[in-house]
Amino acid sequence: MATKSKRSIKWLIGISIALAALLLPKFASDYGIHIAIISLFYVLMSSSWNLVAGFTGQVSFAHAAFAAIGAYASSLMAIHYNLPIPLTIVFGTCIAGTLGHVLGRLCLPLGGTYLSLVTLSFAEILRIVITNEDQWTRGTMGLQVPGIFRDYSKTKYYLLFLAITVFAVLGLNLLIRSRMGLRFRAVMDDEIAAASVGVHTTNIRVLAFTLSSLIAGLAGALYGHYAMLISPDIGSLAQMFLILAMTMIGGLGSIEGPIFGAILLEVLSEQIRSFGEYHLLVFGVISLLIVRFAPQGLAGLLRRQRWKLF
């Protein structure tokens, strides 16, 4: 129908979001910027988890664990070897990516349930090792991490996170729309059919899994140097649940879904902070309802509504 006006509206939305995002540090308080940074961290995490879960149909429970790997690898390098932090972040990212690749190679051929169980065990082993090797990691006591910038500035961190998130999300978007993305979905929809037309299913899945662990590692490393303190909690199952809930509520298998979901849940959880323990329950119930009744998430609901509008 009115494709032209539709496209211009899209552009308008895009530009206003970009402007608002860029100008945010000008009018938000330190606290506001802090929430924005954490939201961007979760955008990175849920978008990359979505790459595996939403586009190749595999549920990994080690995604938070890969963030922990990135965070700890980068921090430990920075602390013990005094290397420049940008370098250690690259190092942490690569470690997470490599481990992701190995893990994917080993268990993706076995198929869904086994991948989930192995990633779950892997995450737990990692958590226990980080907790117990406290002469290195300080365990649950938390590791103090040097910051990226010499003088602490929330605005600088925010712009860095924003740049990397935009870059990563655009990259993922391009990937999904490319021929490779088609193969991803082919693998998910009908494994046998995909294989019969010459798509190497395992390779495709390993690729997605590696990429997703890489981004998680990067997000974790950045987070560590921002928070200046990391503990095994970043790799915990509760954290994993949050990422899963963000993706599910926002919309599994869409680009904008996890972005929506991550920002919405992070801002919401700060707003209902005073209710303490209730926020996990609220998120849990909402995501149960969404998974049960609207598996496309909020993004799916919005899309359906837009069809009605135009």
């Binding site: 938000a28 506001g32 910027i33 919405l264 707003q271």
Partner: peptide, 8 residues
């Protein structure tokens, strides 16, 4: 979201 960030 931005309102809630700005006037937190």
């Amino acid at each position: 979201i931005f309102i809630s960030l700005g006037f937190a």
